[in-house]
Computed example of a mutant assay.
Amino acid sequence: MAVESFSSIRGFADAQRRSSRRSHALFEALQKEIVLGSLQPEQSLTEMDLAQRFDCSQGTVREALMRLNEEGLVNRLPNRGTHVAPCHADDARALLNIRREVECTYLDRVVARANAQLDRDLHEMLNGMRNAARDRDEYMLSVWDRSFHTRLFLAAELPVVTPILTRCLIHNHRFKILNSTPNRELEATAERHVPILDALAARDTEALHDILGHHIATIVDFGPDLTNGDTAG
């Protein structure tokens, strides 16, 4: 009985891991479609349709939609179903202000803890952005861009705050992609991160603050300043 019980537990755990992997893959696929606008704001989503489309169970779809709901990318309401979240300028402006406050306020902690590993990680992410830009892969450019800013902030060692930043980042990038000029220069988007690296390499907190603040404020087509702030140009 003990062997059978152990086998049953192990089999259940394996099934859970497989389900978790499927759910995560679906979450990433739907996140990409929402960020790129393939799934449009306010569009209705049904578990049955998604299960058929992605050839998976409705339980897997439900798990993925719950994660998207936690990120604010979909709205799941009782008796009203699931809809892709709206993407309004007022929300974008509020999130940009929160993001700038989070990223720029604690740069003294980032600079104090900066080391060669941080520099290498950020350069690797910049190279990821450059490769994605050359491939005209706007979504992967967004993924590397968000990773860059998250990695920079992680150096501040404020783990409870990090999820706030990551949520701001995904919505900032969604708004940018849905509202920027078509066929813009993706390589220029990647290169905007070079001054951030230069200021960090110099361990210049003041310069890093000004550069990063301007970088965040002018996220959509490098202007206008969506935060209505007074960051230096």
Score class of each variant (00 low, 15 high):
216 I>P: 01
190 A>I: 04
224 P>H: 03
176 K>G: 05
169 L>R: 05
193 H>T: 13
220 V>F: 00
162 T>G: 00
170 I>L: 06
216 I>K: 02
173 H>F: 08
192 R>Q: 14
214 H>W: 13
191 E>M: 11
203 R>M: 14
174 R>N: 13
168 C>T: 03
180 S>L: 09
221 D>Q: 14
222 F>P: 00
224 P>V: 00
196 I>D: 11
168 C>V: 01
204 D>I: 06
196 I>P: 02
172 N>L: 14
218 T>C: 10
190 A>T: 04
223 G>D: 04
189 T>N: 10
217 A>H: 02
172 N>Y: 02
199 A>W: 08
193 H>Q: 11
214 H>I: 02
198 D>R: 13
206 E>M: 11
192 R>L: 12
194 V>E: 11
174 R>G: 10
206 E>G: 13
203 R>H: 14
201 A>S: 09
204 D>F: 11
178 L>G: 03
186 L>G: 11
166 T>P: 03
214 H>P: 00
212 L>Q: 08
220 V>D: 00
199 A>N: 07
189 T>E: 15
218 T>H: 14
198 D>P: 02
168 C>E: 01
222 F>M: 05
213 G>M: 07
217 A>L: 01
175 F>W: 14
173 H>D: 10
206 E>C: 13
178 L>I: 06
194 V>I: 15
223 G>Q: 07
163 P>D: 01
204 D>S: 07
205 T>A: 15
198 D>M: 11
221 D>W: 13
223 G>T: 04
215 H>T: 04
220 V>N: 02
224 P>L: 01
163 P>V: 00
221 D>H: 10
193 H>S: 10
202 A>F: 06
181 T>Q: 15
174 R>I: 08
203 R>S: 12
188 A>L: 12
204 D>V: 07
166 T>W: 00
170 I>P: 00
214 H>T: 06
195 P>N: 02
171 H>E: 09
223 G>N: 03
162 T>L: 13
193 H>F: 14
224 P>N: 00
182 P>H: 06
214 H>D: 11
176 K>D: 08
195 P>D: 03
194 V>H: 03
173 H>A: 09
187 E>R: 12
178 L>C: 07
195 P>W: 01
218 T>V: 09
224 P>D: 01
220 V>G: 00
183 N>K: 11
221 D>V: 10
212 L>S: 07
180 S>D: 13
194 V>L: 11
178 L>D: 06
208 L>S: 08
188 A>H: 12
171 H>Y: 07
198 D>Q: 15
182 P>N: 09
169 L>P: 05
168 C>P: 00
209 H>L: 13
186 L>C: 13
217 A>D: 07
175 F>D: 08
217 A>P: 02
195 P>S: 01
182 P>W: 08
199 A>R: 08
200 L>S: 05
170 I>W: 02
197 L>W: 08
211 I>W: 05
209 H>N: 15
168 C>N: 02
196 I>M: 07
212 L>G: 03
223 G>P: 02
195 P>E: 02
170 I>K: 02
182 P>S: 08
210 D>C: 10
169 L>F: 09
186 L>V: 09
186 L>Y: 14
196 I>S: 04
189 T>W: 10
221 D>F: 11
193 H>I: 06
211 I>D: 04
188 A>K: 11
171 H>K: 11
195 P>T: 03
186 L>Q: 13
167 R>I: 00
174 R>F: 13
211 I>T: 14
211 I>M: 05
